[in-house]
Design a binder for these strands. Structure first.
Lengths: 214, 214, 214, 214
DNA sequence: AATGAATGAGTATTCATTCAT
DNA sequence: GATGAATGAATACTCATTCAT
């Protein structure tokens, strides 16, 4: 009994610590989103997390460590989409998936621009991001492509490399499409761009050979 | 005579100023490439330009101004490629163009990573970059697509939106492919990725309807 | 009985407290020796004493308090030497004593450098050190000198002031000689320096008047 | 002419720089003396020198660099004394010299305690101090001792080692005697201590052999 | 126009001490 | 008494920009 209580206490403390960490990450993410990583100060992060500045360092070794933790813990928008990919197996489902991927709002996680920016020139962050988010998705997509080829509704391509290209291009395009959100040009502009991109990736630019002239 | 000489002096001075500005931009670009924009100090830029730190401010209003000037003056790698696009009109030339675009090494301008990074979260820089480099290219590509459709070797798509999607996706992919240069994984890896992406953009993933099973 | 037990408990607790205090002092002394007082952190001291950081403050009021406690509890190297001085009464014994004092390695207590350093500019620590270690030694040496004069093997000097000067000079020289330990120049260097100093203190520089030319 | 003027301008600037450096050193020395090296802040030093905090770093690379510069530029009290030693050659002059050395006020340079304290546990500073101040003095004293031995008024000792011992002991004793200044005990106390030390170093403790009983 | 010294606001991180559990 | 998370004051150093010469 006594022992159990001890365990209980320990785990309660552990849970408190974990909760605190997540509070900090959440606060930091919002500050990063608002100001960018470089501009964000530890003072602001601490204030947003409603703790003392020094307390940050009880949970993370450095400001950069916080960024790394954000990257590895947060699901990227792509993750969620391809999670459902697992169960897809038909042509129309696949098309819908690519379209939805490009239309996904994803601004629920505004810090993603900051993370992307930093990862862009920081090889360590880039690897971290790839390892935590991209790798698995590529594998899943490769399997999906394989099945599509077998089922006959996908061109016979090299599944591995094309999966890489597709995911990379999808991500890059999503990032670019995210920009449309801000400069609020004509509404629907973003949707049209997304649809055009989806069409491009799915059907390519070239008219299939053996197709009669328009 | 006196007047002419004055004019002469002025224009000579103007030319000197312009030459100096370009020297500074060149120096700054190499420093930015080596260290990134945020890390680069005005002291380093001045040293690289062989000029006093204070003198920088006779030519540019701020450090950021130098970055903006670099963006608007330097041709982007895409520019040069699509410049030759003007004269293309056949199917194979088009295919080759896309492939070359993705395979272009582009490390001649290493500062491009820095510029991209900064433009990524800085809306003003982003617009600057688009206005100076992307807009015109999109227009040219749209015309090219139009001609391709008319000539019958391109699918009948909306030229404007697909041009946007193509250029955006091409640029994004190029950026991603640039990363491959650094972590020198297996040689040829980058080429394979580029080729897979080109194939994706040109022919799409889907098997054209009406095509017999494999 | 109950009363006795209470006393017993108390004194057992007292003993435990004292033991803990000494453990802390020992741990702190070794940390101070390794890093110096300013560099040493309470975290390190606590770790070395195998105790929680906060628990330190159940035994000592502050970090500085620990230093003070170290000073007042630890015997200085001089103490032990002059302890044996008590029983000396002859010329040769005295000479040997001074020589041994200067040659004493004293690295058994490496924290002495730290203590000395801090006491050097901290008047309160200095007084503490004097009161706890120097004062009594000076008195003993003065008595020794007095006896030497009476016995006829010491010059007739003012015992009190010369004792002060001798102890002070001895201590200062020992401190300086301690430095030799580190930069391990030629071996024997330290011994020679010590011997020269002993000779100086014992026989002075001047040739006694009335001594024939060399 | 023009060239000369150019030189003139340069040297004026140089002189201004040098003057500034010395102002900073002077200001820093007084702050160090008042608070000790570790306690002194760059903000205080800058304020005392009446310049901006950042300007410090136009003249010195770091706070520690300022300390090193103070050490190597400032004459130690010993330096000045032994400068006059050069011309001494007789017994009484020598005696007077040692006495004056120990009585030298030297609190004109209150930062010397700080410097000593830091050099005490910092081998690099210690070497710096030795190289800049002690080495030459030891050599001069060795020559002086040599002459004294030849002239017959000094005991036949090893000049080199005894010079080292004498200077070291003198310095150490001076340092200790400096403490008397602060805790203003009885006036004259310091003088008596100094005189006793001088007597000790000059004539030693032991009664010369062959001297009749008192 | 050129220079480079002067400026001073801006900031991540450390650490002795406190205090709730 | 024990713990260790929370605190927050304290600080050397950087660097874009200005300005006197």
């Amino acid at each position: 009994m006594r022992h159990e209580q001890h365990q209980d206490t320990l785990s309660r403390r552990d849970r408190r610590i974990e909760r605190r960490q997540e509070e900090i990450l959440e606060a930091a993410a919002s500050v990063f989103a608002a100001e960018g990583y470089a501009q964000a100060t530890t003072r602001e992060i601490a204030a947003a997390a409603d703790i003392a500045e020094g307390s940050l360092y009880n949970y993370f070794a450095s400001k950069r460590d916080i960024l790394v933790a954000i990257i590895s813990r947060s699901p990227s928008p792509i993750d969620r989409l391809w999670a459902e990919a697992e169960n897809l197996a038909d042509r129309d489902g696949f098309i819908g998936l690519v379209e939805r991927a490009l239309l996904a709002p994803a601004p629920e996680q505004p810090w993603i621009r900051t993370v992307t920016k930093e990862a862009w020139t920081d090889d360590e962050l880039f690897r971290e991001y790839q390892a935590d988010h991209v790798r698995e998705t590529v594998t899943r997509v490769a399997r999906l492509i394989e099945r599509g080829i077998e089922a006959g509704w996908l061109r016979p391509v090299d599944p591995e490399h094309v999966a890489q290209a597709l995911v990379g291009t999808l991500m890059a395009s999503m990032m670019l499409l995210l920009r449309h959100t801000r400069g609020s040009e004509e509404p629907g502009e973003r949707e049209q761009a997304a649809r055009a991109t989806a069409d491009l990736l799915l059907f390519g630019l070239m008219k299939p050979e053996g197709t009669p002239h328009a």
